[in-house]
């Protein structure tokens, strides 16, 4: 381990979103977090009895399979995540308005609500993501158990999140915007021993 480093939370006001930069152990980055900008987000819930019709329409119009459990499916720049029976989150970095895209495809089959301003989306990469998340999670995030494509709406450091594993070494999560400072504070604190990079440029 590198030589002495002062704890990053010592100088970080608790109600302020931490600025971009490197925290904790110098000269290594066990976790790199990036706030994903420009993501369009919506919730999708079928009208009563319309679940089969929606599944078929999503296949034909968007070439996406609605996950039947708490899983994430990816199609290009679009992601669908199951969050409850008959409830999904749709995310897109392609559509300026994913709610509008869904509404155009599904019409009265579903209730669609824009959530783009409700959440902060974080991309987490690096060899120590699972170890870091494990410090605040109540579910088993061992990379052999929580596999790519799995998703969970759960708690991290007492904060409600939706977490999914996009690739082998890439995890993503959504957290309510008002909890951004608290959640990043947890990440800064928990990943400091591995070296933590927030919003690295380039």
């Amino acid at each position: 381990m590198a030589e002495h480093w002062s704890h990053p939370l010592d100088t970080l006001p608790f109600d302020t979103v931490p600025p971009a930069g490197h925290y904790g152990v110098a000269d290594m980055t066990g976790v790199a977090a990036r706030r994903i900008e420009g993501l369009s987000i919506a919730t999708l819930a079928p009208a009563r009895g319309a679940e089969a019709a929606i599944t078929e329409t999503m296949r034909q119009a968007l070439a996406m399979e609605l996950p039947g459990a708490s899983r994430a499916v990816f199609a290009g720049a679009r992601t669908l995540i199951g969050t409850a029976p008959g409830r999904w989150l749709a995310l897109s970095s392609l559509d300026r308005d994913i709610a509008g895209t869904l509404r155009a495809a599904l019409g009265p089959l579903a209730a669609i609500t824009d959530q783009s301003d409700a959440f902060i989306a974080l991309d987490l990469a690096g060899p120590k993501v699972a170890d870091t998340l494990a410090k605040g999670a109540l579910i088993d995030l061992d990379p052999r158990v929580f596999l790519p494509g799995m998703a969970a709406t759960t708690v991290l450091a007492h904060i409600g999140i939706t977490l999914w594993r996009r690739e082998e070494a890439t995890w993503r999560l959504l957290v309510a915007r008002s909890f951004e400072a608290a959640l990043l504070r947890f990440l800064v604190s928990s990943a400091a021993e591995y070296g933590f990079e927030l919003d690295a440029r380039g």
């Binding site: 708490s70 409850a84 969970a152």
Partner: peptide, 10 residues
């Protein structure tokens, strides 16, 4: 039944 095994605190 939907989420799998979860801690009672949830």
């Amino acid at each position: 039944p939907y989420c799998g095994e979860r801690d009672a605190h949830e």
